[in-house]
């Protein structure tokens, strides 16, 4: 039976210079991370390239001592891999371009409303980032924002549900947006597709 050592211990040992700890970390997360990457890119070679680039970033960050262990090693690594997958799709825009030279353009008739894989990944990331920003808001502002944006409720309904006046609900929504913008600007967060 293989002994599973906690990530935090392995990271600490590696940062102290124990190279064997890195081997254990890589082998421990190999299948999970590789399968995650493969589920997105559907290509074995690209999967291994991204896996390699991910751990090269991990190694550099750990060796610089720039990693702050908060018990979230795997989610941090997955996040790096996720960003590299997005880069991969940006680099490989392999969709053939259709050049129309006549009056009729087939793409004017056929349309696909679904996002492509790259846009979907970026959208997922933005949704995730936005969710975290909303979580940071004061409770009253968060409640109004969630009801308005995610539940599509009118301000009248929000006011009735929260037991405040419409003006108060409007004010809370306004402050919620101001606060989110402040955090976005402060941390240079990019929330565009």
């Amino acid at each position: 039976m293989e002994l599973q050592i906690d990530d935090a211990i392995l990271v600490r040992d590696y940062m102290k210079g124990d190279e064997r700890a890195l081997e254990l970390l890589i082998n421990k997360h190999n299948q999970r991370l590789s399968s995650f990457i493969y589920s997105k890119v559907k290509d074995r070679e690209a999967t291994e390239d991204i896996f390699q680039d991910t751990f090269m970033k991990v190694i550099r960050t750990l060796k610089r001592g720039a990693y702050n262990e908060e018990g979230k090693f795997l989610s941090w690594v997955m996040r790096i891999a996720h960003n590299l997958i997005i880069d991969h799709f940006r680099r490989n825009k392999r969709m053939p371009k259709f050049q129309s030279n006549g009056d009729f353009n087939i793409f004017g008739v056929i349309s696909d409303d679904e996002l492509n894989v790259e846009c979907q990944l970026i959208k997922d990331q933005i949704d995730c980032d936005l969710g975290q920003l909303i979580e940071e808001l004061p409770e009253d502002q968060k409640k109004v924002l969630l009801m308005r944006i995610y539940k599509n409720m009118s301000f009248k309904e929000i006011a009735e549900n929260t037991g405040v006046s419409i003006n108060t609900a409007l004010g809370r929504m306004r402050y919620a947006l101001i606060n989110i913008r402040k955090v976005i600007e402060k941390h240079d967060i990019v929330l565009t597709n």
Binding site: E19, L22, Q31, E48, Q52, R60
Partner: peptide, 21 residues
């Protein structure tokens, strides 16, 4: 989802990279 693993040669490369860095 399909379970895949990165080959040992790539892992060897990463370990060598780490030692050399």
């Amino acid at each position: 989802c399909e379970l895949v693993k990165t080959r040992p040669s790539r892992i060897r490369f990463l370990l060598d990279y780490s030692k050399s860095l």
